[in-house]
Design a protein around this nucleic acid. Structure first.
Ligand SMILES: [Zn+2]
Ligand SMILES: [Zn+2]
Ligand SMILES: [Zn+2]
Ligand SMILES: [Zn+2]
Lengths: 170, 170
DNA sequence: GGAATACATGATATGGAATAACATGACAAG
DNA sequence: CTTGTCATGTTATTCCATATCATGTATTCC
Protein backbone atom coordinates (compact mmCIF):
# COMPACT_ATOMS: atom_id res chain seq x y z
CA UNK A 1 0.00 0.00 0.00
CA UNK A 2 2.10 2.91 -1.16
CA UNK A 3 0.39 5.75 0.54
CA UNK A 4 3.16 8.02 -0.60
CA UNK A 5 1.10 11.00 -1.22
CA UNK A 6 3.75 13.10 -2.46
CA UNK A 7 6.92 11.33 -3.25
CA UNK A 8 5.94 8.60 -5.63
CA UNK A 9 4.06 9.76 -8.68
CA UNK A 10 2.56 6.33 -9.18
CA UNK A 11 0.43 6.25 -6.05
CA UNK A 12 -2.60 8.37 -6.39
CA UNK A 13 -5.47 6.88 -4.48
CA UNK A 14 -3.71 6.14 -1.23
CA UNK A 15 -4.89 7.57 2.11
CA UNK A 16 -1.91 9.84 2.47
CA UNK A 17 -1.31 12.77 4.67
CA UNK A 18 0.41 11.85 7.90
CA UNK A 19 3.73 10.79 6.42
CA UNK A 20 7.00 12.47 5.75
CA UNK A 21 7.85 13.19 2.18
CA UNK A 22 9.96 15.22 -0.19
CA UNK A 23 8.06 18.37 0.43
CA UNK A 24 9.93 20.85 -1.71
CA UNK A 25 9.45 18.66 -4.70
CA UNK A 26 5.85 18.04 -3.75
CA UNK A 27 5.06 21.74 -3.73
CA UNK A 28 6.82 22.49 -6.96
CA UNK A 29 5.21 19.63 -8.80
CA UNK A 30 1.77 20.55 -7.62
CA UNK A 31 2.22 24.18 -8.60
CA UNK A 32 3.49 23.22 -12.03
CA UNK A 33 0.56 20.88 -12.50
CA UNK A 34 -1.87 23.56 -11.47
CA UNK A 35 -0.39 26.00 -13.91
CA UNK A 36 -0.57 23.45 -16.67
CA UNK A 37 -4.17 22.63 -15.96
CA UNK A 38 -5.16 26.28 -15.83
CA UNK A 39 -3.56 26.99 -19.17
CA UNK A 40 -5.26 23.96 -20.59
CA UNK A 41 -8.69 24.88 -19.26
CA UNK A 42 -8.45 28.61 -19.86
CA UNK A 43 -8.42 29.40 -16.15
CA UNK A 44 -6.51 32.39 -14.90
CA UNK A 45 -4.07 31.49 -12.17
CA UNK A 46 -3.32 35.07 -11.22
CA UNK A 47 -0.59 36.11 -8.75
CA UNK A 48 -2.86 36.21 -5.69
CA UNK A 49 -4.43 32.88 -6.52
CA UNK A 50 -1.07 31.35 -7.22
CA UNK A 51 0.32 32.70 -3.99
CA UNK A 52 -2.56 31.29 -1.97
CA UNK A 53 -2.23 27.90 -3.59
CA UNK A 54 1.50 28.00 -2.99
CA UNK A 55 1.17 28.79 0.69
CA UNK A 56 -1.41 26.07 1.20
CA UNK A 57 0.82 23.55 -0.54
CA UNK A 58 3.73 24.84 1.49
CA UNK A 59 2.03 24.57 4.85
CA UNK A 60 0.54 21.26 3.97
CA UNK A 61 -2.21 21.67 6.50
CA UNK A 62 -5.48 23.53 6.82
CA UNK A 63 -5.21 27.31 7.13
CA UNK A 64 -7.94 29.68 8.21
CA UNK A 65 -8.90 32.46 5.85
CA UNK A 66 -7.24 35.01 8.07
CA UNK A 67 -3.96 33.14 8.21
CA UNK A 68 -4.06 33.14 4.46
CA UNK A 69 -4.79 36.83 4.56
CA UNK A 70 -1.86 37.54 6.86
CA UNK A 71 0.49 35.79 4.48
CA UNK A 72 -0.94 37.72 1.57
CA UNK A 73 -0.35 40.97 3.35
CA UNK A 74 3.23 39.99 4.10
CA UNK A 75 3.67 39.19 0.44
CA UNK A 76 2.46 42.63 -0.56
CA UNK A 77 -1.04 41.76 -1.73
CA UNK A 78 -4.29 43.27 -0.56
CA UNK A 79 -5.08 42.66 3.06
CA UNK A 80 -8.84 42.78 3.19
CA UNK A 81 -10.89 39.61 3.73
CA UNK A 82 -12.45 39.54 0.27
CA UNK A 83 -9.01 39.26 -1.26
CA UNK A 84 -8.41 35.99 0.48
CA UNK A 85 -11.93 34.70 0.09
CA UNK A 86 -12.05 35.37 -3.61
CA UNK A 87 -8.81 33.57 -4.24
CA UNK A 88 -9.92 30.69 -2.07
CA UNK A 89 -13.25 30.54 -3.86
CA UNK A 90 -11.52 30.25 -7.19
CA UNK A 91 -9.22 27.51 -5.96
CA UNK A 92 -12.02 25.57 -4.31
CA UNK A 93 -14.28 26.02 -7.30
CA UNK A 94 -11.69 24.51 -9.56
CA UNK A 95 -10.64 21.70 -7.31
CA UNK A 96 -7.19 22.90 -6.31
CA UNK A 97 -8.18 23.44 -2.72
CA UNK A 98 -10.76 21.97 -0.37
CA UNK A 99 -12.58 23.58 2.47
CA UNK A 100 -12.60 21.68 5.74
CA UNK A 101 -15.99 22.58 7.13
CA UNK A 102 -15.19 21.22 10.52
CA UNK A 103 -12.31 23.66 10.88
CA UNK A 104 -13.54 26.52 8.77
CA UNK A 105 -10.22 26.24 7.04
CA UNK A 106 -8.69 25.42 3.69
CA UNK A 107 -6.24 22.82 2.52
CA UNK A 108 -4.57 22.14 -0.82
CA UNK A 109 -5.91 19.13 -2.65
CA UNK A 110 -3.79 16.00 -2.41
CA UNK A 111 -5.28 14.37 -5.47
CA UNK A 112 -5.44 17.11 -8.02
CA UNK A 113 -6.57 16.37 -11.49
CA UNK A 114 -9.19 13.71 -11.13
CA UNK A 115 -12.59 15.05 -10.26
CA UNK A 116 -13.31 13.59 -6.91
CA UNK A 117 -15.50 13.86 -3.86
CA UNK A 118 -12.87 13.84 -1.19
CA UNK A 119 -13.04 12.57 2.37
CA UNK A 120 -10.88 13.91 5.14
CA UNK A 121 -9.35 12.64 8.33
CA UNK A 122 -8.81 15.41 10.83
CA UNK A 123 -6.75 15.01 13.98
CA UNK A 124 -8.48 16.67 16.90
CA UNK A 125 -5.18 17.11 18.73
CA UNK A 126 -2.86 18.59 16.14
CA UNK A 127 -5.32 19.55 13.39
CA UNK A 128 -3.41 17.55 10.81
CA UNK A 129 -5.57 16.79 7.79
CA UNK A 130 -5.27 13.89 5.39
CA UNK A 131 -7.28 13.53 2.25
CA UNK A 132 -8.55 10.15 1.18
CA UNK A 133 -9.89 9.41 -2.22
CA UNK A 134 -13.50 8.70 -1.34
CA UNK A 135 -15.87 6.75 -3.46
CA UNK A 136 -19.09 8.63 -4.10
CA UNK A 137 -20.87 8.86 -0.78
CA UNK A 138 -23.43 6.33 -1.82
CA UNK A 139 -24.73 3.64 0.40
CA UNK A 140 -27.38 4.57 2.86
CA UNK A 141 -27.33 8.21 1.99
CA UNK A 142 -27.83 7.61 -1.69
CA UNK A 143 -30.81 5.42 -0.95
CA UNK A 144 -32.22 7.91 1.53
CA UNK A 145 -31.81 10.72 -0.94
CA UNK A 146 -33.62 8.82 -3.66
CA UNK A 147 -36.39 7.94 -1.25
CA UNK A 148 -36.78 11.55 -0.18
CA UNK A 149 -36.54 12.95 -3.69
CA UNK A 150 -33.43 14.89 -2.78
CA UNK A 151 -30.90 15.60 -5.50
CA UNK A 152 -27.39 15.34 -4.17
CA UNK A 153 -24.94 17.67 -5.86
CA UNK A 154 -22.01 17.62 -3.51
CA UNK A 155 -21.01 15.90 -0.33
CA UNK A 156 -18.85 16.61 2.67
CA UNK A 157 -17.24 13.70 4.47
CA UNK A 158 -15.00 14.49 7.37
CA UNK A 159 -13.80 12.10 10.04
CA UNK A 160 -12.44 13.42 13.29
CA UNK A 161 -10.10 11.41 15.44
CA UNK A 162 -6.48 10.87 16.33
CA UNK A 163 -3.64 10.78 13.84
CA UNK A 164 -0.89 8.17 14.20
CA UNK A 165 1.49 10.62 15.85
CA UNK A 166 -0.96 11.78 18.47
CA UNK A 167 -2.16 8.26 19.12
CA UNK A 168 1.39 7.27 19.83
CA UNK A 169 1.93 10.06 22.31
CA UNK A 170 -1.13 8.96 24.23
CA UNK B 1 -37.89 3.61 19.87
CA UNK B 2 -40.61 6.10 19.21
CA UNK B 3 -38.75 8.16 16.76
CA UNK B 4 -41.95 9.05 15.09
CA UNK B 5 -40.22 11.84 13.57
CA UNK B 6 -42.84 12.88 11.29
CA UNK B 7 -44.78 10.85 8.86
CA UNK B 8 -45.46 7.20 9.39
CA UNK B 9 -45.13 5.80 12.89
CA UNK B 10 -43.69 2.59 11.62
CA UNK B 11 -40.86 4.15 9.70
CA UNK B 12 -37.87 4.67 11.84
CA UNK B 13 -34.92 4.71 9.55
CA UNK B 14 -36.66 6.65 6.84
CA UNK B 15 -35.01 9.73 5.37
CA UNK B 16 -37.59 12.09 6.81
CA UNK B 17 -37.40 15.79 6.82
CA UNK B 18 -38.97 17.21 3.73
CA UNK B 19 -42.47 16.00 4.45
CA UNK B 20 -45.45 17.44 6.20
CA UNK B 21 -46.34 15.94 9.53
CA UNK B 22 -48.17 16.40 12.78
CA UNK B 23 -45.72 18.91 14.07
CA UNK B 24 -47.26 19.85 17.39
CA UNK B 25 -47.31 16.23 18.39
CA UNK B 26 -43.82 15.76 17.03
CA UNK B 27 -42.42 18.51 19.22
CA UNK B 28 -44.19 17.42 22.36
CA UNK B 29 -43.20 13.82 22.00
CA UNK B 30 -39.59 14.67 21.38
CA UNK B 31 -39.48 16.96 24.40
CA UNK B 32 -41.05 14.36 26.61
CA UNK B 33 -38.60 11.75 25.40
CA UNK B 34 -35.71 14.07 26.03
CA UNK B 35 -36.88 14.72 29.56
CA UNK B 36 -37.28 11.04 30.19
CA UNK B 37 -33.83 10.22 28.92
CA UNK B 38 -32.24 12.98 30.95
CA UNK B 39 -33.86 11.77 34.13
CA UNK B 40 -32.78 8.27 33.30
CA UNK B 41 -29.18 9.22 32.61
CA UNK B 42 -28.80 11.79 35.33
CA UNK B 43 -28.52 14.65 32.89
CA UNK B 44 -29.84 18.04 33.82
CA UNK B 45 -32.24 19.42 31.26
CA UNK B 46 -32.32 22.90 32.72
CA UNK B 47 -34.69 25.65 31.60
CA UNK B 48 -32.27 27.21 29.10
CA UNK B 49 -31.36 23.87 27.63
CA UNK B 50 -34.96 22.80 27.45
CA UNK B 51 -35.92 26.06 25.81
CA UNK B 52 -33.22 25.71 23.17
CA UNK B 53 -34.21 22.16 22.40
CA UNK B 54 -37.83 23.22 22.21
CA UNK B 55 -37.17 26.02 19.77
CA UNK B 56 -35.07 23.78 17.54
CA UNK B 57 -37.78 21.15 17.52
CA UNK B 58 -40.32 23.87 16.89
CA UNK B 59 -38.49 25.43 13.97
CA UNK B 60 -37.63 22.11 12.55
CA UNK B 61 -34.73 23.49 10.62
CA UNK B 62 -31.18 24.57 11.29
CA UNK B 63 -30.81 27.73 13.36
CA UNK B 64 -27.66 29.78 13.75
CA UNK B 65 -26.37 30.33 17.26
CA UNK B 66 -27.46 33.94 17.20
CA UNK B 67 -30.99 33.10 16.13
CA UNK B 68 -31.11 30.81 19.11
CA UNK B 69 -29.75 33.61 21.22
CA UNK B 70 -32.39 36.06 20.00
CA UNK B 71 -35.12 33.65 20.96
CA UNK B 72 -33.54 33.12 24.37
CA UNK B 73 -33.48 36.83 24.96
CA UNK B 74 -37.14 37.11 23.99
CA UNK B 75 -37.91 34.35 26.44
CA UNK B 76 -36.16 36.22 29.23
CA UNK B 77 -32.95 34.25 29.43
CA UNK B 78 -29.44 35.59 29.22
CA UNK B 79 -28.58 37.19 25.93
CA UNK B 80 -24.84 36.73 25.69
CA UNK B 81 -23.34 34.26 23.21
CA UNK B 82 -22.01 31.84 25.81
CA UNK B 83 -25.53 31.24 27.06
CA UNK B 84 -26.57 29.86 23.71
CA UNK B 85 -23.34 28.04 23.02
CA UNK B 86 -23.30 26.28 26.35
CA UNK B 87 -26.83 25.05 25.96
CA UNK B 88 -26.10 23.95 22.41
CA UNK B 89 -22.93 22.19 23.53
CA UNK B 90 -24.86 20.24 26.10
CA UNK B 91 -27.52 19.23 23.61
CA UNK B 92 -25.01 18.26 20.94
CA UNK B 93 -22.87 16.41 23.44
CA UNK B 94 -25.80 14.29 24.47
CA UNK B 95 -27.20 13.66 21.05
CA UNK B 96 -30.33 15.79 21.20
CA UNK B 97 -29.06 18.23 18.63
CA UNK B 98 -26.65 18.08 15.71
CA UNK B 99 -24.44 20.77 14.34
CA UNK B 100 -24.58 21.25 10.61
CA UNK B 101 -21.01 22.20 9.81
CA UNK B 102 -21.84 23.34 6.35
CA UNK B 103 -24.21 25.97 7.71
CA UNK B 104 -22.62 26.68 11.06
CA UNK B 105 -26.03 26.00 12.47
CA UNK B 106 -27.86 23.59 14.71
CA UNK B 107 -30.80 21.26 14.23
CA UNK B 108 -32.74 19.00 16.55
CA UNK B 109 -32.04 15.33 16.09
CA UNK B 110 -34.65 13.42 14.15
CA UNK B 111 -33.67 10.03 15.47
CA UNK B 112 -33.15 10.53 19.16
CA UNK B 113 -32.35 7.64 21.37
CA UNK B 114 -30.23 5.38 19.29
CA UNK B 115 -26.63 6.39 19.19
CA UNK B 116 -25.99 7.16 15.61
CA UNK B 117 -23.64 8.83 13.22
CA UNK B 118 -26.06 10.91 11.27
CA UNK B 119 -25.95 12.08 7.69
CA UNK B 120 -27.67 15.18 6.44
CA UNK B 121 -29.22 16.41 3.25
CA UNK B 122 -29.12 20.16 2.99
CA UNK B 123 -31.03 22.13 0.40
CA UNK B 124 -28.88 24.87 -1.02
CA UNK B 125 -31.94 26.90 -2.01
CA UNK B 126 -34.10 26.89 1.09
CA UNK B 127 -31.67 25.52 3.70
CA UNK B 128 -34.04 22.76 4.67
CA UNK B 129 -32.23 19.96 6.45
CA UNK B 130 -33.18 16.29 6.61
CA UNK B 131 -31.45 13.76 8.74
CA UNK B 132 -30.89 10.28 7.42
CA UNK B 133 -29.99 7.38 9.60
CA UNK B 134 -26.54 6.72 8.25
CA UNK B 135 -24.73 3.48 8.55
CA UNK B 136 -21.29 3.94 10.02
CA UNK B 137 -19.26 5.82 7.46
CA UNK B 138 -16.58 3.24 6.98
CA UNK B 139 -16.35 1.82 3.53
CA UNK B 140 -13.56 3.49 1.68
CA UNK B 141 -12.81 5.85 4.51
CA UNK B 142 -12.54 3.09 7.06
CA UNK B 143 -10.01 1.31 4.91
CA UNK B 144 -8.04 4.48 4.33
CA UNK B 145 -8.06 5.24 8.04
CA UNK B 146 -6.77 1.81 8.94
CA UNK B 147 -4.06 2.07 6.32
CA UNK B 148 -2.98 5.45 7.63
CA UNK B 149 -3.20 4.48 11.29
CA UNK B 150 -5.85 7.06 11.94
CA UNK B 151 -8.39 6.42 14.69
CA UNK B 152 -11.81 7.66 13.69
CA UNK B 153 -13.92 8.87 16.58
CA UNK B 154 -16.65 10.79 14.85
CA UNK B 155 -17.74 11.58 11.35
CA UNK B 156 -19.53 14.34 9.54
CA UNK B 157 -21.52 13.47 6.45
CA UNK B 158 -23.41 16.25 4.77
CA UNK B 159 -24.85 16.23 1.28
CA UNK B 160 -25.75 19.46 -0.40
CA UNK B 161 -28.30 19.62 -3.17
CA UNK B 162 -31.90 20.39 -3.97
CA UNK B 163 -34.85 19.31 -1.88
CA UNK B 164 -37.99 17.99 -3.57
CA UNK B 165 -39.81 21.31 -3.22
CA UNK B 166 -37.05 23.37 -4.73
CA UNK B 167 -36.45 20.83 -7.48
CA UNK B 168 -40.11 21.12 -8.42
CA UNK B 169 -40.02 24.89 -8.62
CA UNK B 170 -37.09 24.64 -11.01
C1' DG C 1 -26.21 22.43 59.69
C1' DG C 2 -22.04 24.09 57.43
C1' DA C 3 -17.96 23.69 54.49
C1' DA C 4 -16.38 21.94 50.27
C1' DT C 5 -17.24 20.66 45.60
C1' DA C 6 -19.11 20.53 41.22
C1' DC C 7 -21.85 22.42 37.95
C1' DA C 8 -24.84 26.03 35.71
C1' DT C 9 -25.54 30.73 34.60
C1' DG C 10 -24.51 35.75 33.84
C1' DA C 11 -21.80 39.35 31.79
C1' DT C 12 -17.63 41.41 29.49
C1' DA C 13 -14.54 41.42 25.93
C1' DT C 14 -12.25 39.84 22.04
C1' DG C 15 -11.08 37.26 18.09
C1' DG C 16 -12.06 34.91 13.82
C1' DA C 17 -15.13 33.83 9.74
C1' DA C 18 -17.85 35.61 5.95
C1' DT C 19 -20.24 38.72 2.90
C1' DA C 20 -22.49 43.10 1.02
C1' DA C 21 -21.59 47.01 -1.53
C1' DC C 22 -18.96 50.13 -4.10
C1' DA C 23 -14.87 51.63 -6.84
C1' DT C 24 -10.95 50.89 -9.86
C1' DG C 25 -8.01 48.73 -13.23
C1' DA C 26 -6.84 45.34 -17.04
C1' DC C 27 -8.10 43.43 -21.15
C1' DA C 28 -10.58 41.38 -25.06
C1' DA C 29 -14.37 41.80 -28.48
C1' DG C 30 -16.98 44.39 -31.33
C1' DC D 1 -12.94 53.80 -28.92
C1' DT D 2 -16.57 51.72 -26.41
C1' DT D 3 -18.56 48.13 -24.13
C1' DG D 4 -18.52 44.12 -21.39
C1' DT D 5 -16.14 40.97 -18.46
C1' DC D 6 -13.31 39.74 -14.99
C1' DA D 7 -9.97 40.51 -11.22
C1' DT D 8 -8.58 43.37 -7.60
C1' DG D 9 -8.89 46.82 -3.96
C1' DT D 10 -11.36 49.03 -0.05
C1' DT D 11 -14.91 50.00 3.38
C1' DA D 12 -18.21 48.46 6.40
C1' DT D 13 -20.96 45.23 8.60
C1' DT D 14 -22.70 40.90 10.19
C1' DC D 15 -22.33 36.48 12.03
C1' DC D 16 -19.84 32.71 14.48
C1' DA D 17 -17.15 31.36 18.55
C1' DT D 18 -14.40 31.36 22.72
C1' DA D 19 -11.60 33.03 26.75
C1' DT D 20 -12.22 34.92 31.17
C1' DC D 21 -14.08 36.31 35.41
C1' DA D 22 -17.92 36.58 38.57
C1' DT D 23 -22.08 34.74 40.70
C1' DG D 24 -25.38 31.43 42.01
C1' DT D 25 -27.15 26.83 43.11
C1' DA D 26 -27.20 22.46 43.72
C1' DT D 27 -24.90 17.90 46.05
C1' DT D 28 -21.73 15.68 49.02
C1' DC D 29 -19.31 14.89 52.97
C1' DC D 30 -18.13 15.77 57.55
ZN1 LIG E 1 2.38 17.16 -0.22
ZN1 LIG F 1 -2.41 14.60 15.53
ZN1 LIG G 1 -40.81 17.01 13.40
ZN1 LIG H 1 -35.25 23.48 -0.81
Amino acid sequence: MTSETHPSPASDKAPVGFQEHDHKNCVETALANAEARCKEDGLRLTPVRRKVLEMLLQEHRALGAYSVLDRLREAGFGSQPPVAYRALDFLVQNGFVHKIERLNAFVACSHPGATHSPAFMICRKCDAVAEAQSAPVPGVLGAAARAAGFEIEQTVVEAEGLCPDCTEKA
